[in-house]
Amino acid sequence: MAFYAGSLRMTSREPRTDAMSPIDAYRIPTPPFYLSRGSEVEVFEAAWEARLPVLLKGPTGCGKTRFVEYMAYRLGRPLVTVACHEDLFASDLIGRYLLRRDETVWVDGPLTLAVRHGALCYLDEVVEARKDTTVVIHPLTDNRRRMVIDKTGELLPAHPDFLMVVSYNPGYQSVLKDLKPSTRQRFVALEFDYPEPEREARIVAAEAGIPPEAAARLVALAAKIRNLREQGLAEGAGTRLLIHAGLLVRRGVAMREAVRTAVCLPLTDDEHLRETLEDLIADVL
């Protein structure tokens, strides 16, 4: 490395002189709409005070991400979200050197950014990430609260306000993938499910901007579709799908067409299941 030190300057961090910190971009400016379903807000706040990492379990589209956004806003902390996938390495979380003109510049990865600046770091669908990510997650979620950046040789203690939040969906991931007990047992777990019909209707009406009756109709349909979970449907219709349907309705798409487009087709390609969904639509709408 010393060989080309004259032309390529290696830096451990890119110096920042501007007043705007990179983490500011991750602040949530307006309060997200969230209806509490129990004591999860209080439990999360208590976990935050004790700096206990939080694990959110629940099906797709039931409001996990929205809850974290809401809590980040409520606690006044930035939120760094990483959607995990099977090619996500630890280095993708930590950061890497990049070239900038004649320099190699270290750029913090999303996790390092959160650790350094005291943000909430939300690893969505964490079981999807490669196993080597546990090397980074473990020291940050026990009493060490630090991360080692091997490429720069930096030992980075977590900012006092840093908190890790992870989510996973036991429904369809449990067969092939699961969190190791050594990882699980570092977290406080909060379980999520689809909201009760009345609350879900309020959420859909508020988010999509449609009348409560139309929202209630969508929710009633979703409740029936959810009965088909494990009967061919990997996942039931999440609240997110209902909001999508509602947004289409609000823009003038007929209710049945909106449901077909935003709920049925994204849920399944199976012709037989689609027939059943059509039967339910014909009954409920």
Partner: peptide
């Protein structure tokens, strides 16, 4: 039959 059985499953849970 299978279609109706799926429908009943969805209706009744």
């Amino acid at each position: 039959g299978p279609r109706l059985a799926r429908y009943l499953r969805a209706r009744l849970g």
